[in-house]
Nucleic acid binder design. Structure first.
Length: 140
DNA sequence: GCCAACGTTGGC
DNA sequence: GCCAACGTTGGC
């Protein structure tokens, strides 16, 4: 299984919106960046991801699961853009802030630290485990 | 609200 | 195909 990170502005599409969609999940639409799209094409059913709030919060707030693999983005007619569907799995007991991630040497190579602008990112196994530990949340 | 970093666009 | 100009993102 692979791990990912999805970034969103909470006032546009936040964790609470994602939870409201339940197990049906929702398209991760609106991505207009080739790197991010290519990562979504690699995603498999059952892969897990972090849900990250940018701007004021700057924290990983929960865990999501891929519930549909890449398909055309319904919000555009441009065939270049695809997206996956994700559903909320569980919130973090304790949100993990960007500051905490940056100050943890084990996470210094995270894409979130290296390239803060990429909205869909891969996360390594070790990083996944570490951030889950910091968030005091089991991924099962 | 500013600005640095990055990606995209379009003229040549 | 290069590169300058521009727009967007997101941390500060």
């Amino acid at each position: 299984m692979a791990f990912w990170l999805f970034k969103s502005e909470p006032n546009t599409w936040g964790w609470d919106d994602q939870v409201a969609k339940g197990d049906a999940g929702e398209e991760w639409d609106g991505v207009r960046n080739y790197q991010a799209r290519n990562f979504m094409r690699e995603m498999q059913l059952g892969d897990r991801g972090f849900f990250y709030h940018s701007l004021k919060e700057k924290s990983v707030v929960g865990i999501v699961e891929i519930c549909a693999t890449a398909h055309p983005d319904s919000k555009t007619d441009d065939p270049r853009w695809e997206c996956v569907d994700i559903k909320a799995v569980r919130p973090f007991a304790k949100p993990v802030s960007l500051d905490e991630i940056k100050s943890n040497p084990a996470l210094s190579e995270m894409v979130l630290v290296r390239n803060s602008r990429l909205s869909v990112q891969p996360v390594s196994d070790a990083e996944w485990q570490e951030v889950c530990r910091m968030g005091q949340t089991k991924d099962d």
